[in-house]
Amino acid sequence: MLVLALVLIPTIANDFFLVQIFAQAAILGLIALSLMLLGGWGGIVSLSQMSVAGLAGYTLAILGQSSMSQSLGSNSWLAAAAALAVALIVGFGIGLLVGRTRGIYTIMITLAIGVAVFYLANQNYAIFNGFTGYSGIAAPHVLGVDLRAPLPFYVLCVSLALMGWAGVAALGRSSFGKALIATRDCERRAAAIGFHVGRHRLVAHTIAGLLAGLGGILLVWFNGRISPGTIGVGPMIDILIIAVIGGMSRPSGAFLGAFVFVLLRTFAIDLVDPERFNTLIGLVFLVIVLTSRDGLLGLLGKLSKPERRKMSPRLKTLEREETS
């Protein structure tokens, strides 16, 4: 149903909607998806997923083509592949760094990593081109089609988002995914039944790195540029907000959150002045967090089956006895 809707959308939506709303939501959703995997299932709240995306984006800009002289000008696809590899390695590296930490300490360390990456990019001119960053980065052409043209870009972003979604959903049903959730529920038991909890977390960080990297590449093609502002503390927190607004229990939450976030950011200008966007999103965040334990997913769940409570098997047995 969703896929059908996504196929039909281009027939009714204009280019602005296709790119600014749907493609952008798909991109931010992919980055938030990486946080959903780590935080929702692994219990690892990492603030540096935007930094991973950013480092992938920078890799693309540096190795590929841009209007900056620092760019090496290699093939866009090669640059994209290298960017993914960098994201994978950075994800792994962050996993190594925060592996032994838990809870608030993980949040603090990943915040520190993100801030460090921001300042590195801001102050390093040789590689990151400092404050200016890179601009004029074009998406590649496939069979003469410019991937950054509205419809192709919509198709590219939405298909990759769907693949990411399906991939993470399958992961959640796999032995790895279930064990990851188990390490969140009860780390001690997970170890006591034979799982190497540290290795599991490390693999989760690496996969999350890949997802964030994918988002980072698309983000650079979307903006045509990348600069330290792309990966500052604001955008880092935005990813957290998106993931929490949407709900962290399932992969769909990341995209739901991204969609609402992008809608608000795009149209808040009409309602309140742009400066007030953070106040608005803060309010929305507050309302959702206070009314639902699982973001919009939780709210939707309540709406679709308001009466049905999870019934304990014991109650069910009693009920069966009564009716029989």
């Binding site: 796999s174 032995s175 959730i181 188990a182 038991r189 997970a190 799982f195």
Partner: peptide, 29 residues
Amino acid sequence: QLFETMSVADNLFLALRGVARGHLTLIPT
């Protein structure tokens, strides 16, 4: 010390997986 949010089936499945191979299998098999 149980996996509170998971089903009885998944708790036992994981206990079995824990002492078998395939800890890092990324898709359902």
